[in-house]
Amino acid sequence: MKLLFQKYKVLIVLALGITIVFFGFKYFSKKKPEKKITEENKNVFTVPEDVIRRHPLTYVGLKEVSQFEELALPGRITYDPESMAKVGSQVEARIKKVLVKEGDRVSQGSPLAILSSIQLGEVEAAYVKARASLDALKMQADRAKELFEMKVTSAKEYEFATMQYKTAKTEVETTRIKLDNYGLTPSEIEGIERGIYVSSNLILRSPINGEVTERKAILGQQVTRNEELFTIANLSHLWVLLDVYEKDLGGVREGAQATIYPLGDEHSSVQILGKVGYVGTVLDNVKRTAKLRIMVSNKGNKLKPGQTVTAKVAGLVVSTGGGKRKMIPVEAVHEIEGKSFVFVPHGEGSFEAVNVVVGDTIEDDVIILGGLPDGAEVVSKGSFVLKSEFMKF
């Protein structure tokens, strides 16, 4: 009987062992796939509800647009009006001497030509005479004031002397303004006042630093008032003018980057970058185009006023008729450890950081080359908050 009991005891222990092994195997076999799922979703994270409430999120889908390429347009190089000057005589005169030629570099105040003007000589003589008269009348006015205060002369005599002095002073000031308008420098006018500079000669001077790009002055030439004799320009900054059709204007913005290169040679090594400074608001009634002005820095003088060039401007594009491109807003893409990520919602405050391949940026959108399936939604506005939460994991 005792032996039979021991046999049953052994059987019970074996049964318990087999049961423990069986259920243990089932338990660990179930846990293994769960571990695998966790590894596959390591980029999935949860954001607290209060964070989402404080920072509302906007969801956007992939936007498909047609394939485009930048539109190349012919343009013309012209002066920047803020960096150029037209120089001419302010009085009728004859050119006695020309001091510069085209291509010469000049500084502000540099003499360009010497002119002889009878009219200027007359104004100079009138200024000298007016100055002398002013000095005499000032003495008379001062003397009349003293006598009036001593009750030697009448108020009428004192007022008459004072009026004569004020009239002479006005004449001197008016004549000086004429000399200044004719182009005489303050030192030259002071010389006339001291009686050491009385001449009918007029020196034309450059009003800016730059280069003589045009000379019309000829020795012995008789010139009229405001006749243009020289063009001085600072060629370090120029404009490129383009005619843009009405239908293409919508994609251009001030500040957009532009590339300038020789006419028709897009692959030339001579390429200059510029920026759109102005988008015309008035259309040509016939051509239905508006002016587009590009500002360029002309280091090395590679560009010449009057030159025809080709320009490509960001936003000026034309459809190629090819396939579609997928795009999302730039603010939806974030760089993390050298890779580009977007955040895809999984519901109930859960999000996944998805690695994507990006292409060019066009205005406020970026091209997605891979990583997102069709129909996927990503977080746009507020995605910077998700980036902060993701970096905590």
Rank of each mutant, 00 (worst) to 15 (best):
K9C: 06
P186V: 11
K31V: 09
V240G: 07
V87L: 01
G274L: 09
P33C: 07
L4P: 00
L11V: 15
D135M: 12
L283V: 12
P345S: 06
L134C: 02
E363T: 13
G347F: 10
Y197E: 13
M150I: 06
F351L: 10
A125I: 05
N285M: 13
I367W: 05
Q221E: 15
V123I: 14
N41F: 15
L62R: 09
L292E: 01
D80Y: 04
E49F: 10
L120D: 02
L386Q: 03
E211W: 10
F390T: 00
A332C: 13
G251F: 02
E49A: 15
Q90Y: 11
V128Y: 11
I196K: 08
T320F: 10
S199F: 07
V44D: 10
G121I: 04
G191V: 02
G315H: 00
G17S: 10
L134Y: 06
G371W: 08
V330D: 06
P345L: 00
P305S: 02
L219K: 12
L115T: 01
D50V: 15
T78V: 06
I362Q: 13
G359Q: 07
I37C: 07
A126Y: 02
R105Q: 13
S199I: 04
K9H: 08
V44Q: 03
L303V: 02
M150H: 08
V98Q: 05
Y182V: 03
F28G: 00
V379L: 06
V212C: 05
G371S: 04
H334A: 14
Q257Y: 08
G17I: 14
I192Y: 03
V244M: 00
E173V: 13
A353K: 02
M391N: 11
A126P: 00
K166I: 03
T213K: 09
G306V: 11
M391D: 04
P56A: 10
Y165M: 12
K7V: 15
E64L: 11
S388T: 15
E49P: 01
Y165W: 15
Q6W: 08
E211N: 07
V240K: 07
K166A: 05
K32I: 08
S83H: 15
N226C: 01
S383Y: 03
L202D: 09
V244K: 03
S29A: 15
A141M: 13
E92N: 11
E149C: 02
E337Y: 07
T224I: 13
A233E: 00
P345W: 06
A311G: 04
N301K: 14
D243E: 13
R194G: 08
I177A: 08
I114A: 05
E159G: 00
K392N: 12
K299D: 10
T153R: 04
K129G: 06
K86G: 02
V65N: 05
L137Q: 14
K42F: 14
K392A: 02
E246Y: 07
T167M: 09
A256D: 09
Q108W: 05
V106G: 00
V128G: 01
P48A: 14
S117L: 02
L73A: 12
E159Q: 14
V366K: 01
Y261S: 05
N43Y: 14
G338I: 08
I272P: 03
A93G: 07
A217F: 07
S187A: 11
T78K: 00
R205S: 09
R253K: 14
Y197Q: 13
G347I: 01
R54E: 06
D364Y: 11
L120Y: 04
E193W: 07
K312Y: 06
R205H: 13
